[in-house]
Design a protein around this nucleic acid. Structure first.
Lengths: 343, 343
DNA sequence: AAAATTTTCGAAAACGCTTTCGTAATTTTT
DNA sequence: AAAAATTACGAAAGCGTTTTCGAAAATTTT
């Protein structure tokens, strides 16, 4: 009834457990006849070695924990997809957990996983720098727990580990430059991830592009939006008070919403107002007009971060210095921006 | 350097391992003084009980394996989300694996997981009935392996377990009826999941609705599309040869594509051609016109299937008969269908 | 045929933990 | 003060494997 173990087989043949173990692993120490008998029996009775026991003996689980802020966000799903590809190829399973933007849940999850269910962790933290400092005990413990970690996208200097990040500065710069090159002058930013390093970097890139054209930076054009905020209401201030001709939004769903609102207020996209957004997911291609987006190459990021982690797991002796890979973004030009004038 | 174990602590205090174990678990068998000392030491040195060892002893992992066809499909992500909610609440972690529509990978994954990494499995199989029969050995072994299973959406009679399915028959019926009630007469079906039971049931519902209005069923109006097929090309035949005024598509991305193609060919949606699709995901709300969709309540399905499985895991003695829950769909009416005439 | 070698198997330890049970030491009860 | 009860700890078994080492049995070599 319950699962078949080596012991059961041993009892059945009246031999020792070690003999059965060797027979099943086809060791030369066991005679052909006996091996054949045992192997046949094991096969017929669906013997499966107990992985937990093997894990205990090997002191490894071949599991990798992945903690992401939100599984309903297409970017993270893409990364997860990439992680799974290489992990499975290299014989690891993924234990994925979402923190749902909750720092408490993230901390709890990390603690749980660090109890030995996984060989390593891949994290994109919901916490901001300051929050990490507050929850420093938890994070500190995690690092102390010696479990190899790799981070991506939402990383922090407070943790020393391999990292894969997006070149968000350049992304902000490139997007802004594209606005300027297509004749836009007054560009607003809508960020649902204010207070994150990512948001800061993109904005820095934006400022650099403006500066190159001697356009003064205007704080009022940066619009942070909370998760429950009324986007239409907030956006109306910016649209009313300024002569906006470009909007840069920091995630896909926000970009689509912004576009819908702008259209509803009678603006033409892209002629009156151009729009560029972050994360080239499933939405942006099919809305009308289709949206020009910054692709962060999520799957590639996932593959990279998984490779980094697994390499480290499998070369425990050679402790190379931690590595930070920066992946460039691409601008996928569609119909929410004007064409670059040919001359 | 390596992880702290009970043995290390025992050595440090020159007591036995069992004493340390009891002290850390705050057993009354240990004196307050000693407990205090040991607990303090454990805390300061970040002692974490080794979960693998505990799992071995308890003969349980508190992991649930989830195998879904495609993580980039929003319906499955929603289900996964629902599963994770209840699983985490009840103290389980999720090991998620995607089969990427590959039967081989699905079989391999299931075999891997059945080796004892998980206490139970939640499956939505990519395999069709006939394929399961071919791969029957694998599936049979899985069932033989005694590991509790729950299936959802893509289920099969060949496996006896708890199931959560969508009322696809009724969904097909309701959608078709809505077409008819809004004046559509000639309704095509576009199915990217032909040969699945789900597709068959939806089509049955469609036929029932037609029959009620004495509209003959026309095989030519059913358009199966493969994953790499040129949808526009295939669709053109149907559009050219018939006076279509309604199209029912069986997944979200296909629905959006159909709408785009139909619009591009100069038809008005919904006036010339109405469109209803399956899976109320992120896309359908934001495309133009927004799409009337059949919501399958993915998160709810996930919650339900996880509850069923965990209940079974935790009541091993009382082996209740397997249960099949049928969840009703809802029609989310938007702008790709005409209004129901008021009288 | 004796010696040397090889083959074939089993005992035991180890992975890290929990728990039962036994026992010495301490405290309480009579 | 002796008996009874309680407290405080340790030994050992067990969860299911793998692996090292020892030893008996079979085979080969002299």
């Amino acid at each position: 009834m319950s699962k078949l173990t080596l012991k059961d087989i041993a009892a059945h043949f009246k031999v020792s457990i070690s003999t059965v173990s060797k027979a099943i692993n086809d060791s030369h120490e066991i005679s052909q006849k006996l091996k054949a008998k045992i192997q046949k029996f094991a096969q017929e009775n669906h013997y499966k070695p107990n992985k937990v026991a093997i894990n205990l003996r090997n002191r490894s689980t071949r599991n990798i924990g992945v903690v992401i802020p939100n599984i309903l966000n297409y970017f993270f799903v893409q990364v997860l997809y990439g992680i799974e590809q290489v992990a499975n190829n290299r014989g690891y399973n993924i234990i994925s957990c979402t923190s749902n933007q909750s720092i408490e849940k993230e901390a709890k999850t990390l603690e749980l996983l660090s109890y030995g269910s996984v060989d390593g962790l891949i994290i994109s933290s919901v916490a901001t720098e300051s929050q990490i400092k507050n929850h420093a005990e938890g994070m500190k413990e995690l690092v102390d727990s010696q479990i190899p970690i790799a981070m991506f996208d939402r990383v922090t200097d407070l943790i020393d580990c391999d990292k894969v990040i997006v070149d968000d500065f350049e992304a902000g710069y490139k997007a802004t430059k594209y606005f300027l090159d297509t004749g836009c002058q007054t560009i607003a930013i809508v960020t649902p991830i204010d207070h994150t390093e990512i948001s800061r970097l993109r904005t820095e890139g934006y400022r650099k592009a403006l500066k190159e054209r001697n356009i003064p930076f205007d704080e009022k054009l940066i619009l942070p939006v909370g998760i429950d905020d009324d986007l239409e209401f907030l956006l109306s201030f910016i649209l009313n008070d300024n002569q906006i001709d470009g909007i840069l939004a920091f995630d896909e769903i926000t970009t689509v919403k912004v576009m819908t609102i702008v259209k509803a207020r009678g603006y033409q996209v892209p002629n009156d107002i151009s729009i560029i957004g972050f994360t080239n997911g499933q939405l942006s291609k099919y809305v009308t007009p289709s949206l020009t987006m910054v692709s962060q190459h999520g799957a590639y990021i996932g593959e990279t971060v998984a490779s980094l982690l697994i390499n480290r797991l499998e070369n425990k002796e050679v402790s190379e210095p931690f590595e930070t890979r920066i992946v460039k973004t691409s601008l996928i030009v569609r119909d929410s921006t004007r064409k670059i004038p040919m001359d």
